[in-house]
Simulated scan of single mutants.
Amino acid sequence: MVMKKTTEFLVLAALAGVLSGCHKRNEPPAAPPLPTVPVRLQKVEAKTYPAIEEVVGTVRAKMKSSISAKVSGRIEKLLVAPGQKVKAGDLLLQLDVGEIQAQLQRAQAVQKQAAIELERMKSLFAQATVARAEVDRAEMQFQVAVGNVKEVETMLGYARVTAPFDGVVTRKIADVGDLASPGLALLEMEDPNLLRLEAEVPEALIDRVKLGDQFTVRIASLPQLLEAVVGEMDPVADPVSRTFNVKMDLPQATGLRSGLFGRVAIPVSQTTTLRVPASALVVRGQMEIVFVANKGAAQLRLVKTGKRIGEEIEVVSGLNAGEEVVVDNAPRLRDGQPLTRQ
């Protein structure tokens, strides 16, 4: 009986050892410590900034032209295409104006006949055969013939349509073989070096805009902000939209071109807010996150942001003045990760 109990005890002990060994082998290994990340920090401060209202606008060329012919005729040659740069005086298209060439030949023939008649009358007058009035009449007919030739030559010159200024062709409306007539647009061109932002300013803000004022403009496709100067503004509001068209001259900038979307910031008052660099904000799904340096480690902080002004973003909640936020390498960080200041 004692031997049986002893055997059962040994079996149970062996099973316990086996189970204990299996349990130890199934335990996951401890996670390695997070690496230390070098970062730049910036202290959050409450500052007074101008409160602004943004008005949307479109970049347009200050100098643009709709090219049309001054005489009628079919387009014989079209020498440019949209996107092509041209210089003032460059030939854009050539018209087939056979009728005008025929008119020129007739006018030249009349001029030649008038010149012969004038010389004949002068010779007869010298012989006292005709009166002075006949010579004057022949002189007048000759001058009229000369004028007719010059007029037709001018019309013939209009068959060559040239660029009115340095610029780029933006649109081709007609093609070879189409009939051109006075006032009918054939091409469009503009000067890409002289651009401005055209914005419709609401009546509530127009009193804050004056000729010569300078405003900050943000173009969606450009990384930098631009400073625009008000060059023109309508004195009367649009009766439907109740807005005023304001045109602001833009400086030259790489990548700036006609048709881009932009926003102009119009100051309306002063406000005190917290702002952080845009590089400090990390967006994960619907969450807006910044990392605060706390005792040498990154502390994840959910925030609520407001407007973006330049390279800074307004923080409405989630941060306190005096805290230091990570302004680079933020997307790489995890909560609690060790930090070292660069």
Rank of each mutant, 00 (worst) to 15 (best):
G177N: 10
V97R: 03
R40G: 09
G147H: 10
R208M: 06
N193H: 03
T58L: 05
V55D: 02
R257P: 05
E288C: 01
A185C: 05
V86H: 01
V229G: 04
D96Y: 03
R171E: 15
P164E: 03
K295H: 12
E190M: 10
G336Y: 04
L300Y: 00
L195S: 10
G17W: 14
S241Y: 07
V217D: 09
A109C: 04
Q141D: 12
L194C: 00
E314C: 06
L197G: 07
L339H: 09
S181A: 12
A138L: 11
L92R: 08
V290R: 05
P182G: 07
G83F: 08
L250I: 01
V146L: 13
T7M: 12
L256Q: 10
T162E: 09
T162G: 06
L118H: 13
G157C: 06
V11A: 12
A180I: 00
D90A: 07
G212M: 09
E188V: 00
Q337Y: 09
A61D: 09
S317A: 13
A13L: 15
E8D: 06
T254I: 03
S72R: 10
G73M: 07
D234L: 11
G310N: 12
K77F: 08
M233F: 11
T340N: 02
S123I: 09
R334F: 08
L300D: 00
V303F: 10
K64I: 00
Q84G: 05
A69H: 02
L41D: 09
R60D: 11
L187N: 05
G285C: 14
E151F: 08
V39P: 06
D213P: 04
P33C: 03
V130A: 10
P32F: 06
A16V: 14
D238A: 10
A278F: 05
V152Y: 06
T305E: 06
L194P: 02
E288H: 15
K304Y: 00
M287I: 13
A280R: 03
V86R: 09
V55C: 06
L260Q: 15
L79A: 13
I67Q: 01
G17E: 03
V55M: 05
G255W: 07
A199Q: 11
E54Q: 12
V292F: 08
L319E: 03
E8Q: 12
G183Y: 05
P235F: 03
L78Y: 05
L256A: 02
F215S: 11
V2N: 11
E203I: 01
Q270L: 13
K307C: 00
V268P: 04
Q299P: 02
K24M: 12
Q141S: 12
S241E: 14
R275T: 08
E99Y: 02
L211T: 11
N148R: 10
R74W: 08
A30K: 15
M3H: 08
D175P: 00
Q101L: 05
A159K: 14
N193E: 12
T170Y: 07
M155G: 04
D166S: 04
P267I: 07
Q42R: 14
V264D: 04
Q111I: 01
L319V: 09
V327L: 05
D178I: 03
A321L: 04
G21L: 13
K5A: 13
R60F: 07
S181R: 14
S20A: 15
